[in-house]
Simulated assay, not measured.
Amino acid sequence: MKSTYLMSAVFATSTVLVAPTMAVPDTPKKWEKCAGIAKQGMNDCGALDGSHSCAGQAKADNLDTEWVYVPKGTCNKITGGSVVAIKPAK
């Protein structure tokens, strides 16, 4: 009975230690502003048209004047750009 508990504990611990490394993407080197993808109330900083100067004030989803920071190259993927390079798996 004790060996069952020990194996369960080992499995749970190894799962916790491995899972975060698989779920975390590469750390971005550069960020870009991506307009038109922010959800209502989830924008970063002020609107591009100057209608407000604070984060979290987007009045609707996907407004052209509201933006969020995304890793460089991501915005083109979201707005219909094409992938021009593929990173090899490690």
Rank of each mutant, 00 (worst) to 15 (best):
A9K: 07
T74I: 09
T27E: 14
S82K: 12
S53L: 12
S3N: 10
L48E: 12
A35V: 04
T27F: 11
D61E: 07
K59Q: 14
P20C: 01
F11T: 15
C75D: 04
A55H: 08
S3I: 15
I37L: 05
K90L: 08
Y5F: 14
P88G: 06
V68H: 01
K2T: 10
A85G: 02
K90C: 08
V18M: 10
P20D: 01
C34K: 00
I37D: 03
D64P: 15
L6T: 14
S14K: 05
A47I: 03
K87F: 01
V70E: 04
A60S: 13
T13R: 03
K59P: 08
T74A: 06
P25R: 00
K77I: 08
G50R: 04
D49P: 02
H52E: 08
P88S: 09
H52L: 00
K39N: 14
N62Y: 13
A55N: 09
V83A: 11
A60L: 11
A38K: 02
L17E: 05
P88E: 06
G41C: 07
L17S: 10
A9Q: 08
D61K: 01
S3P: 05
K30E: 14
K2I: 12
M22V: 14
S14L: 15
V83W: 05
S53Q: 10
L48H: 08
